[in-house]
């Protein structure tokens, strides 16, 4: 079911639809948890560290990296987290181990990140309608492109922008602007933004006048105030039904 929050919006078929990736096209947290567990098991085997030590230091490393690289794509880099983790644990720069942990993390992450039901159908329906679709996402290009490839969506989107291209995470409006320019659309276009994060996706896109849709599922809280979306939905099937109705009109 689609819920509308801002009644003054007159909904029409958009010129383009922008999608966030993580926690929007798939559920992020279970995949991340499984991946961290796999990385711990490997670290436990390679370095002999226990669970408590691993997760405490991993958290510390993550915060340090995020603090140093605030709001940039590299601030999410697991390779940097693991490299710093190894340093915090008092080991020498064990580059191979850091690379191994990163590979283990992402391999397990992908295996545990199935797309939400209805995503593929919606995207192929939008392609049928010839509505341009794009991805605007944080994190580095390499892993985000790997994810899209793993999902089998490598040929689906018309354009992809990662925060690495801009040098700053969402809600920096340059991310959205670059994607619109890649889609050959003016900034004043009627476009939709679909994402889970009230701050980076909804607030960020609203600054450019987008019609915003927040994907709600486990652990996602509806935005408030400036971060309140125009619409929220739980299932992609409902979103597709909404678009089908707009097409009929």
């Amino acid at each position: 079911m689609i819920k509308q929050y801002l009644k003054n919006k007159n909904l029409t078929l958009p010129k383009a639809i922008l999608f966030d990736t993580d926690n929007t096209l798939y559920e992020y947290h279970p995949a991340n948890k499984a991946a961290e567990e796999a990385a711990f098991l490997k670290a436990n085997n390679l370095l002999g560290i226990n669970r408590k030590t691993f997760f405490e230091n991993y958290q510390k490393a993550r915060l340090e990296v995020k603090k140093n690289l605030s709001n940039t794509a590299s601030g999410h880099s697991r390779l940097l987290y693991f490299q710093r983790l190894i340093e915090l644990l008092g080991f020498r720069a064990q580059l191979l181990v850091a690379l191994d942990l990163e590979q283990t993390f992402w391999r397990t992450f992908l295996a545990n990140a199935p797309l939400f039901p209805g995503v593929e159908n919606l995207l192929s329906y939008l392609r049928q309608l010839k509505i341009p679709i794009g991805i605007v996402t944080d994190l580095t290009s390499h892993i985000q492109l790997r994810k899209l490839t793993y999902f089998g969506l490598e040929d689906t989107f018309d354009a992809v922008v990662t925060s690495e291209e801009i040098g700053s995470d969402k809600p920096d409006k340059r991310n959205f602007e670059l994607l619109l320019s890649k889609l050959d659309l003016p900034l004043t276009s009627n476009f939709w933004m679909i994402g889970d994060d009230p701050y980076s996706d909804i607030f960020g896109a609203k600054k450019l006048g987008a019609v915003t849709f927040q994907k709600i599922h486990n652990g996602v809280i509806l935005g408030k105030g400036e971060q309140l979306p125009d619409f929220s939905f739980k299932n992609f099937e409902d979103l597709q039904a909404l678009i089908q109705n707009l097409v009929k009109i």
């Binding site: 559920e27 279970p30 995949a31 499984a34 567990e37 796999a38 098991l41 490997k42 085997n45 283990t104 397990t108 295996a111 545990n112 990140a113 199935p114 039901p117």
Partner: peptide
Amino acid sequence: MFKRLSRKAFTPYGIKDQRALNSL
């Protein structure tokens, strides 16, 4: 080690299967 990893990191019942089970 690999066996241990594969047993724990790749549960016999993955997230996709859990989701199908929930939808039941």
